[in-house]
């Protein structure tokens, strides 16, 4: 399992928030957040590519 370094005070906030939100650990909470953020960025990138495709096909300007 890879590790990522974050500021200690941020980690404390993450740990407390994860506990309040019902996550079993800070790791589980952070993994969920990162997965969501990555999916959002990937989705935005693929939406741009779809627009290029539709433009190439002549369906949008």
């Amino acid at each position: 399992m890879a590790k990522i370094k974050i500021d200690k005070s941020l980690y404390e906030r993450v740990r407390k928030t994860a506990e309040r939100a019902g996550y079993s650990s800070a790791d589980e909470f952070v993994t969920h957040l990162i997965e969501k953020a990555v999916a959002d960025v990937e989705g935005a990138a693929s939406d741009e590519e779809v627009e290029k495709q539709l433009r190439g096909l002549g369906y949008i300007e």
Binding site: S46, D47, E49, V50, G56, L57
Partner: peptide
């Protein structure tokens, strides 16, 4: 003309999502 810079499989997934 040119379209998306995606593989056909990636384009299928992008369309599924949209």
């Amino acid at each position: 003309t040119t379209g998306a810079a995606l593989t056909p499989g990636q384009l299928v997934k992008a369309y599924e999502s949209q």
